[in-house]
Amino acid sequence: MTEREGVSVEEKSFFQTRAGGLTIAFLVIMAAFAVIMAGLSGGNDGLCTAGFIMIGAAMLYSPVKVHLYDRLKKK
C-alpha cells in the first residue's frame, strides 16, 4: 500500500485526495447524526429534515463524483 500511498497523501494535502473527500463526507454524516438525535429527542421535525438532507448529500458525494462529475469533466 501503502508506503507509496502514504507518502503521496502526505505530499498532496490530505483533503485533496479521494480519502480526504470521503473523510469530509464522513464528518458531515457525523454532524447530521448529532442534528438528527437532537431533532428526535426534541420532537423537532425541521432538525430531522436538515439531518436527512445532510446525510443524503454526503452519501451521494462519491457516486456523483466518480460516475457523473469525473466523467463529464473528462468529456
Binding site: E10, T17, A19, L22, F26, M59
Partner: peptide, 23 residues
C-alpha cells in the same frame, strides 16, 4: 506518525459504504 496517517487515509473511504449499507 506514519502509522496513524496511513491508518486514517486507508479507513475513511470504507466508512461511507458501511454506513450506507447499514442504514
Amino acid at each position: 506518525k506514519g502509522v496513524f496517517v496511513r491508518s486514517v487515509s486507508m479507513t475513511m473511504p470504507s466508512g461511507i459504504a458501511v454506513i450506507g449499507l447499514v442504514i
